[in-house]
Computed example of a mutant assay.
Amino acid sequence: MSLITITSLDGRSRSLAASAIAEIVDPPPSSAWHGCRAHVKLFDGRWIEACETRDDIERQLMEQMR
């Protein structure tokens, strides 16, 4: 199983299975103001506000596919 690491806004690092991620989107300005750099939607419907950018998360996913 391929895992990537995402840091939530409360500072906790989470290891997620790459296959659990359904969508990654840039946050609206109001979320970005509070430090959120990407919204990550999981296939179970939960959302994580991440400190990493969408590009950083996508880069981790691409590395796991190698």
Rank of each mutant, 00 (worst) to 15 (best):
M1N: 09
M1S: 14
M1Y: 09
M1D: 10
S2L: 10
S2V: 10
L3Y: 12
L3N: 09
L3M: 15
I4L: 15
T5C: 11
T5E: 14
T5D: 08
I6C: 03
I6Q: 00
T7Q: 12
T7F: 10
S8A: 15
S8W: 03
S8K: 15
S8P: 00
L9K: 05
L9R: 06
D10I: 05
D10S: 14
G11D: 03
R12E: 09
R12G: 00
R14P: 00
S15F: 13
S15G: 10
S15L: 14
L16E: 06
L16R: 03
L16Q: 05
A17S: 14
A17L: 14
A18Q: 08
A18Y: 04
A18R: 05
S19R: 14
S19H: 13
S19C: 10
S19D: 13
A20Y: 07
I21V: 13
I21L: 07
I21W: 07
A22F: 07
E23A: 08
E23D: 11
E23M: 06
I24N: 00
I24K: 02
I24V: 11
I24E: 02
V25S: 12
V25C: 06
V25G: 02
D26H: 06
D26Y: 07
D26K: 07
P27D: 05
P27H: 08
P28Y: 09
P28L: 10
P29R: 06
P29A: 14
S30Q: 11
S30E: 13
S30L: 06
S30C: 04
S31E: 14
A32W: 05
A32S: 13
W33I: 08
W33P: 00
H34K: 15
H34G: 05
G35T: 07
G35I: 09
G35L: 09
C36A: 13
C36P: 00
C36M: 05
C36I: 06
C36E: 06
C36L: 02
R37H: 09
R37S: 06
A38F: 04
A38K: 01
H39F: 09
H39N: 07
V40P: 00
V40R: 00
V40H: 01
K41A: 09
K41H: 10
K41Q: 09
K41L: 11
L42C: 03
F43K: 08
G45I: 01
G45T: 01
R46E: 09
R46Y: 02
R46C: 04
R46V: 01
W47Q: 08
I48L: 15
I48D: 00
I48G: 00
I48S: 01
I48M: 09
E49K: 12
A50W: 02
A50Y: 03
A50M: 05
A50F: 06
C51S: 13
C51K: 15
C51N: 05
C51E: 11
E52Y: 03
E52L: 03
E52I: 02
T53N: 04
T53L: 04
R54L: 08
R54S: 12
D55P: 00
D56K: 02
I57W: 07
E58T: 06
E58M: 10
E58L: 13
R59I: 11
R59P: 04
R59M: 12
Q60A: 07
Q60T: 03
L61V: 02
M62G: 10
E63C: 09
E63V: 05
Q64P: 01
Q64L: 13
Q64Y: 07
M65C: 11
M65R: 14
R66A: 12
R66V: 07
R66D: 11
